[in-house]
């Protein structure tokens, strides 16, 4: 496979099939942890790591895993990597872990991870799987940081932890309600950009895998 195709695969995770804005998967963490850019970034890092490693592992063992028990097998693989990132975060960033520790452990059941393992990694070779997992993870991180930026700006009157002068924070934006608002509006914006500038249909994409 050529480098161009890998690049396209990577970009697919960010634009074409963005986990949050286009596939509408894993919306729970997208609402719950995105009260600031930093939280979104940390969650994105954790998910990117887990997704890349899970896709690599599933791809390696794709011919050895019995299809009848594949879902439990995937969950075990995901749980392993989630434990790694969970313990790492608990050790090195205590404050953030206290705030979002629960959601780090919940990565085990994120729909986007198991769907990429099932739809992509279990039928593709190692390298494309790794690129797909990484691209999807980065797409997830970008989405969470965008949502976090809007919510932090409006809800706390700060950006990246730096308070803005004269801000009148809207409390609703740091509540879950605001999360839904922002996700909906950003999703609409993404669809509009796709429709307006890339000639897309604006609807959720149909096919999966490599295009």
């Amino acid at each position: 496979m050529e480098i161009k195709q890998y690049w396209r695969l990577f970009k697919n995770g960010i634009f074409g099939e963005n986990p949050v804005f286009r596939l509408a998967l894993s919306l729970c963490p997208a609402v719950a942890v995105t009260t600031s850019v930093r939280n979104g970034f940390l969650m994105g890092i954790a998910v990117t790591f887990v997704m890349t490693m899970v896709n690599i592992t599933v791809s390696i063992f794709r011919n050895l895993i019995n299809p009848k028990v594949r879902i439990p097998a995937y969950i075990l693989i995901i749980a392993t990597y989630t434990s790694v990132i969970d313990m790492t975060m608990a050790a090195y960033s205590r404050a953030a872990y206290k705030e979002m520790g629960l959601y780090i452990q919940l990565i085990v059941v994120f729909a986007i991870i198991i769907s990429r393992a099932e739809l992509f990694a279990s039928r593709n070779k190692l390298l494309p799987s790794a690129v797909d997992g990484f691209g999807m993870g980065v797409g997830f991180m970008v989405a969470l940081m965008l949502i976090g930026a809007v919510r932090e700006l409006l809800g706390k009157g700060s950006l990246l932890g730096i308070p803005l002068v004269g801000a009148r924070p809207m409390l609703i934006m740091v509540l879950p309600t605001g999360g839904f608002f922002v996700i909906g509006l950003l999703m609409g914006t993404f669809n509009w950009i796709e429709k307006r500038f890339f000639g897309g249909t604006g609807a959720a994409p149909g096919g999966h895998g490599m295009h």
């Binding site: 009148r168 809207m170 409390l171 609703i172 934006m173 509540l175 309600t177």
Partner: peptide
């Protein structure tokens, strides 16, 4: 409702 939640 939005105003009440935002600036109680």
């Amino acid at each position: 409702a939005l105003l009440l939640t935002s600036w109680p």
